[in-house]
Nucleic acid binder design. Structure first.
Lengths: 140, 140
DNA sequence: TGAAATTACTTTCCAAGTCAAATAAATTGA
DNA sequence: TCAATTTATTTGACTTGGAAAGTAATTTCA
């Protein structure tokens, strides 16, 4: 154990960062054609999946900080992709809703993302893939 | 196949982003005590591992864009952690070198990072861990 | 009830990142 | 040889991100 000199590239955090970087670079390259950022796409998918999400829930699910989300949403509202609505029960909360333009954009982009996901998963056999998902989820 | 409605959280890119986010958040929390950013730490480890790295090689290994690296290095030079040296053979290239202060800081930080890596890897059994590394490296 | 504490979100201010252009050195080939 | 091209890095204009403060609504409990 004391003899084991660990190279920093072997740290899990490095391996993760490297894989994340290549994958998200290639994805954002694809999304660029649609003038869309990965985070904005994730926001839209979250909205499509779960109804009446608050900014807080959204930030968590879309993997962005609340204040970052707030500004991202400002831009998305300007682009007509989403709109804010004060929540019925609790007026502190804001529900974000997809516009029909937003939904349409999302559907088109979803194809692009599915393509990239298939390219990616084709690098692995079904077994590794399942295991990878399992293991990654344990880290969260 | 057509019946399979895939939730976006199942995309590999999402699982990776989520895991990367939690891991790097917890790591940067630890590094904060040392007034250090993950990227700066990676730069120092790269320098320690491979000698006479150029900015280009460094950017690749430390997982940052060249222009981002250039500015990060400006700050690290101000902090006395590294210094630039025009490469001997090719005067366009710049070799970045650790100062002794930089090396000392790196060693102390390395302990912190090793700790976090152990916490992390203890969540997994040895087999999953090996497989995880294998699979992640296939994605790069 | 209502003042104090908590919660949800946004804004502000500053640090850091990105893209494209600029600089400068090396290489190519007419 | 030397003008044109390529390569390595930095710079500059602009955008984005994050921490902490600010705002406003809700909850707590004396």
């Amino acid at each position: 154990m004391s003899a084991q000199q660990k190279h920093f590239e072997q740290h899990l955090s490095y391996a993760l960062a490297a894989a994340h970087r290549t994958v998200s670079n290639s994805l954002s390259e694809r999304l660029k054609k649609h003038g869309m950022k990965i985070e904005a796409w994730r926001v839209m998918e979250c909205l499509d999946a779960g109804d009446r999400l608050t900014m807080g829930q959204l930030a968590e699910q879309a993997l962005v900080n609340p204040s970052t989300l707030s500004k991202l949403v400002d831009r998305m509202v300007l682009d007509g992709l989403v709109h804010r609505k004060v929540a019925e029960g609790d007026h502190r909360q804001v529900n974000l809703l997809l516009t029909s333009l937003g939904r349409a954009r999302m559907i088109r982009i979803r194809q692009e993302v599915d393509e990239q996901d298939q390219t990616l998963t084709s690098l692995l056999d079904a077994d590794s893939l399942r295991q990878l998902r399992d293991v990654l989820s344990k880290l969260c």
